[in-house]
Design a binder for these strands. Structure first.
Lengths: 196, 196
DNA sequence: CTTCTAATGTAGACACTGTCTACATTACAT
DNA sequence: ATGTAATGTAGACAGTGTCTACATTAGAAG
């Protein structure tokens, strides 16, 4: 066992992620994370200023991954098709990493002291905004963008927090539901876009 | 200072609520709450099994209040008008009590050990479901209900978590935005309801 | 290759927390 | 009035975040 770990920062993040997923954000402790990484209780402080900073890093990684997923989804698509793909990608991220998703948008991490977090968060929002701006007239754009975000965010959040009726546990049913919901919103947008 | 407090349970909840709003759920500690209530560090255990139980009680009170607000909003209204009022009431609750709202739908409180919580939560969802079922055909009901919930929930959550662009800090602008977003979804519903 | 400095990891301490056990006080039903 | 359950107190224990002081080592400078 060498004195220096080699890639402790990554190991700490991995341990933190595992703890976050298994036992919730409140149970992510620096000492436990250090223990898992096989290192003294104070070693994490060489990589993170505080417990909060570790959580912030996990959230930042989450925003990064979400942004990448959305950009990939947008690639090669336009119009409503692109918007739909973005929504699906957003929700897919929440389904795949519910704990991280809830951390990203939850209050257990106070985001004010970590401006870098807000920056990454806004970048992923940009992808969504641009997609909508190409298909909605200027007057209603603002509401259309925020509404789309709120809708996918609401769906994601309810799914991640297991607030749905149990008959949506099956992946397929949930997929279908998501498509239907997005279709409703899309029709609302279409009507605003073509009022004739 | 009498040996018995008289209404300690209520005092503890009040102190907990204050702490929750001022410093976030992670900072709600039984000992601090006891201190604020002017009582020994162990007194809270006569009223709450654990720290988690205190948080669960705060969340349950929140669901109760949300349910009442929604029932009042529904009263005397029908159709889309009723649905709109429900959405507004839901969002208004999140704006008025963001910390409680985030606790109710966040992961820092593990809800599984508190079945009473889920019961109260589902009751408020019922009001929304019934309102929608009166205005949407059966085939698309399920998606319409969940979509409406997701939309207001997403808006509420983003507002409570301060994720909106800063120019919506003004109450009036935010009100107008909410109306516009709800209108989009409503138009989507209307189209589904009258496909001719 | 040597040396020196910054990066990284360790050890110990402190205050604070949740929660357990044992005990004290008091409200209230009998 | 009296006895019992409800309520509150006191002390202890392990676990936590984070501070200070010290140890080891990687890697640049010479």
């Amino acid at each position: 066992m060498p004195y220096h770990h080699g890639d402790l920062r990554r190991a700490l993040l991995a341990a933190g992620l595992s703890l976050l997923e298994k036992r919730g954000p409140a149970q992510v402790s620096l000492r436990e994370v250090a223990r898992v990484a096989g290192v003294s209780h104070n070693a994490p402080y060489r990589h993170f200023d505080s417990r909060e900073a570790l959580l912030a890093a996990l959230a930042a990684d989450g925003f990064e991954a979400l942004g990448v997923a959305m950009e990939q989804a947008a690639e090669g698509r336009t119009g409503f098709e692109r918007l739909r793909a973005l929504g699906i990608a957003y929700i897919a991220f929440a389904r795949a990493q519910p704990a991280v998703y809830l951390l990203m948008f939850g209050p257990e991490l106070v985001k004010d002291p970590f401006p870098a977090l807000k920056a990454v968060a806004e970048r992923s929002f940009e992808v969504l905004r641009q997609a909508i701006e190409t298909i909605v007239p200027v007057e209603t754009r603002r509401a259309a963008v925020i509404g789309a975000w709120a809708l996918v965010h609401g769906l994601s959040h309810l799914i991640a927090d297991h607030q749905f009726p149990p008959d949506f546990a099956e992946e397929d049913k949930l997929d279908a539901l998501i498509e239907d919901v997005l279709a409703i919103y899309r029709q609302g947008l279409a009507r605003g876009a073509e009022p004739h």
